[in-house]
Computed example of a mutant assay.
Amino acid sequence: MKIIHNPLLPPRRYDAVNILGLLLCRKGTTLTADLIQHERIHTAQMREMGFVGFYLWYLLEWLVRLPMKGRAYTNISLEREAYEHMNDPDYLLRRRHYAWWKHLKRHKA
């Protein structure tokens, strides 16, 4: 995964954003091993779903979760998988395809 430091992306309240497998972060952002792992998990999700499929699913699930209890972003299944395993450096070696699917049923309040 290529890391690009820039002055514009992501929006200020986020540390990094993964666009098509490129990790964009603002200049001066400290990238931790956990954050990089989180974004690598997203890259794996993008590869298995296709980039367009990933972004369509992400947007649709975010829209569905907006009226639900809790913060929509943190309740997206793709994010929950990435957050749950971001501190496990070996996760991608044993990750099954579509592992995020199990997070659809469980809704965090």
Results as ranks from 00 to 15, higher is better:
His107Asn: 09
Leu20Val: 06
Tyr73Thr: 00
Tyr14Asp: 03
Gly21Tyr: 01
Lys69Gly: 09
Lys2Arg: 13
His38Ile: 00
His5Pro: 06
Leu31Arg: 01
Gly53Cys: 02
Cys25Arg: 11
Thr43Phe: 14
Leu35Tyr: 07
Gly70Asn: 11
Trp101Arg: 13
Ala44Thr: 08
Arg95Pro: 07
Thr74Tyr: 15
Glu79Arg: 00
Trp62Cys: 09
Asn18Glu: 03
Tyr55Val: 01
Met46Trp: 00
Tyr14Lys: 10
Leu60Gly: 06
Thr74Trp: 14
Leu78Thr: 02
Asn75Cys: 08
Asn6Thr: 00
Thr30Phe: 10
Arg13Thr: 10
Arg106Leu: 12
Ile3Tyr: 10
Ile19Asp: 05
Leu35Lys: 09
Lys102Met: 04
Phe54Ser: 03
Ile76Leu: 04
Arg106Val: 12
Ala99Val: 06
Arg106Lys: 15
Thr30Ala: 10
Gln37Asp: 05
Ile76Ala: 05
Ala82Ile: 02
Lys102Arg: 14
Lys102His: 09
Pro10Trp: 01
Thr43His: 05
Leu78Pro: 01
Trp100Lys: 09
Tyr98Thr: 10
Arg106Met: 11
Tyr14Gln: 13
Arg65His: 07
His5Glu: 12
Leu8Ile: 15
His97Phe: 13
Lys69Pro: 10
Arg26Gly: 11
Met68Pro: 09
Arg80Gly: 02
Met86Leu: 07
Ala72Arg: 07
Ile76Trp: 03
Arg65Ile: 04
Ala72His: 05
Gly70Glu: 04
Lys69Trp: 11
Pro11Ser: 06
His42Asp: 01
Thr30Lys: 12
Pro7Thr: 09
Thr43Trp: 13
Tyr73Ser: 03
Asp88Gln: 14
Met49Trp: 07
Ala82Asp: 07
Leu31Gln: 03
Leu23Asp: 06
Lys27His: 10
Asp88Lys: 06
Leu93Gly: 14
Trp101Ile: 14
Ala16Asp: 00
Thr43Pro: 02
Leu9Cys: 09
Leu35Ile: 02
His97Lys: 15
Met68Leu: 15
Leu9Met: 15
Glu61Asn: 03
Thr29Gly: 09
Trp57Arg: 08
Gly50Leu: 08
Leu66Asp: 03
Tyr98Glu: 10
Trp100Tyr: 15
Arg80Lys: 08
Leu31Gly: 02
Met86Glu: 15
Trp57Ala: 12
Leu35Glu: 04
Lys27Ile: 12
Glu39Thr: 02
Leu9Ile: 14
Ile41Pro: 00
Leu78Arg: 00
Leu8Cys: 11
Lys102Gly: 08
Glu84Lys: 15
Pro7Lys: 12
His42Glu: 02
His85Tyr: 15
Leu92Asn: 05
Leu24Tyr: 14
Val64Met: 12
Gly21His: 01
Ala109His: 14
Ser77Met: 02
Leu22Phe: 15
Gly53Met: 03
Asp88Trp: 03
Asp90Met: 11
Leu78His: 06
Tyr14Gly: 09
Phe54Trp: 07
Asp15Ser: 11
Gln45Glu: 08
Phe54Asp: 02
Ala72Thr: 04
Tyr83Thr: 04
Val17Ser: 04
Met46Ser: 01
Ala16Cys: 06
His103Pro: 08
